[in-house]
């Protein structure tokens, strides 16, 4: 006992300088991850930025001449008849489709994921773990394979249609596959655990006995849900939305497999510029614009959730 106190005293005398030094040393622990991401994640993006201001090379690649054509092309195209430049909505439509599908997927994930996370969080601790376990298991199977399995379920001669026909609810197969519905479903399915897990972890620590006070105040389940539970789950919902929205926006294999490939998504558009279209600068420009869309929506989103948070406190 005495030893400890002595030790403590000596410590506290030199504690300030040491603390500071230690703090600085500790910051170095950030270095490996920062260096890795800066070199492998951020630096290549600057290459994309440079490429977007160059001219396309013959049959792919780039020519090292400065040009802003890639950005002009996004909004104006040479008319198919006379070659004059006119405003085009083609790319905007593709962006719009991708964004709306990503929003739909995100909403779908919230609608299914929030109740699921809530349900898990309100289970006894033992069962919670089992449920979490169950949520993550499908993840261990390759997403491509799972997407193909969805194909088997949704197609005209798939599990759902054959099942419904056998029960006698329908006589003819409902075309489920190769629709935007199938794509949204596929995206929701792919990213659902990314929604459930953060929401769960934001609610896990909550002492649900506190709800009693809520019932005294609001006396209505819906109000309790709205005023107490959702605000608590909010950070989780926010994190989940980001984790679902961004990959959905850039997704290009799921839409192709389940959507049938008749309409382009941003991902396909970018990919095709580096491939068949042989216009790398344009591909780079669209990629950057896509990133800008992501960043802007993140900023808007954060500001909005931030404001709401402020309101609910005040």
């Amino acid at each position: 006992m005495t030893d400890l106190t002595v030790n403590n005293q000596t410590l506290s005398s030199s504690v300030q300088t040491q603390e500071q030094r230690q703090q600085k040393v500790r910051r170095l622990l950030l270095a490996p991850s920062l260096i890795t991401i800066l070199i492998i994640g951020v630096l290549p993006l600057s290459v994309v930025l440079v490429y977007s201001f160059l001219e396309p090379g013959a049959f792919g690649g780039v020519k090292w001449n400065f040009s802003t054509n890639a950005y002009v092309q996004l909004f104006f195209e040479a008319d198919i008849f006379d070659g004059s430049l006119s405003f085009t909505t083609a790319y905007l439509e593709i962006f719009w489709r991708s964004i709306s599908l990503a929003v739909m997927a995100t909403l779908g994930c919230v609608l299914v994921g929030f109740p699921t996370a809530y349900f898990i969080a309100t289970q006894p601790p033992e069962r919670r773990n089992i449920f979490l376990f169950l949520i993550t298991i499908p993840f261990w199977t390759n997403l491509l394979i799972r997407t193909y399995a969805m194909l088997l379920i949704l197609r005209d001669e798939g599990v759902i249609n054959i099942g419904l026909q056998n029960i006698g609810i329908i006589d003819q197969a409902i075309p489920l596959l190769y629709t935007e519905f199938a794509v949204s479903l596929g995206l929701i399915y792919s990213f659902l655990p990314f929604m459930v897990l953060p929401i769960y972890s934001s609610m896990e620590k909550f002492d649900f006995r506190l709800l009693e006070a809520g019932f005294d105040l609001y006396a209505n389940r819906l109000k309790v849900l709205w005023r107490i539970i959702i605000p608590i789950a909010k950070p989780g919902i926010a994190a989940g939305c980001i984790l679902v929205f961004i990959p959905s926006l850039g997704a290009y294999i799921t839409p192709e497999v389940l959507g049938g490939g008749k309409s382009m998504m941003i991902g396909n558009l970018i990919y095709s510029q580096f491939g068949a279209a042989r216009n790398w600068p344009f591909g780079a420009a669209i990629a950057l614009i896509l990133m800008a869309v992501v960043l802007i929506s993140l900023m808007v989103y954060m500001r909005r959730t931030g404001d709401k948070g402020g309101l609910s406190h005040g």
Binding site: F59, A78, E93, S263, M264, N268, S272, A276, A277, N279
Partner: peptide, 17 residues
């Protein structure tokens, strides 16, 4: 050639927009 490919791409993009 590139001019024709650009024309092809325009048709293709507008078809799949």
């Amino acid at each position: 050639d590139q001019a024709v490919t650009d024309l092809y791409t325009m048709v293709w993009t507008n078809l799949k927009k």
